[in-house]
Amino acid sequence: MRVNWKPFVLTLVVLLTLFPFVYLVLLSLASQWRFPALLPGYFGLDNWRTIWASEVGLVSSFLLSTLISLSVATVSTLSGFLISRSVAYHPRKRLLTLFTYFPYLLAPVVLAACLSYFFLKLGLFGNVTGVIVAQFMITFPYSLIFFSSFWSERTKSFEELVFTLGGTRRQAFVKVLLPLARGMLLICFFQTFLISWFEYGLTSIIGVGKVQTLTIKVFLFIKEANFYYGALSCCLLIFPPVVLLYLNKKYVFNKLV
């Protein structure tokens, strides 16, 4: 009799996928877990209670990360949507799009290191505004590339139809283009939010350790070998994207397909 191995492998894949999430939550609840113990000395909510203590700074880091990511995602989605139109309808579209790929492919941390002189001169070094501007520089090319497929001949003919029927440019934008692009705008917003939320290298260079987002916190806790708070910061870092992915999948992807 042939054994069907598929369910076992699939179960293993699912367990491996869920394992990091479960393990990080368990580690965030643990303390006094020294080698070679298989189970921690303490298991409870003590670490989570300390979130609110100002010296740990996790709540402020969470709020700061949220503020930065929301700002970056909003600005880059809207500007990318509007500016990509000029690029997409330009006769030299291919060349312009190629220029967009350069900063998109370059490691953000290297871009930040080479731009840090200009940020210093502009007074944008070591502050939140500087980090937002720097992150915007890496999410903007993504947004441009993302929306390049939206501005097609079909979209153009929709716009022209509005004008033929007596509609204004504003009406074409509000009543045709925005509803048409709604799904893409949401996806782009989520993606640029995630790029910003996960960003570490560029933030550490431009923020010089003064702008302590959650990724910077995780790194600090790793350096201090404080793995319990490290796991706690990891949980704060990964669960908002999980919720976003769920919403994204439920309300955006499914409607687009």
């Binding site: 990091p20 570490y200 990724t215 790793i222 990891c234 990964i238």
Partner: peptide, 14 residues
């Protein structure tokens, strides 16, 4: 979709 919520820094920590 879940692994997409794990950034590099968390994967390294893990």
């Amino acid at each position: 979709y879940l692994p997409l919520a794990i950034p590099g820094v968390v994967a390294a920590f893990f």
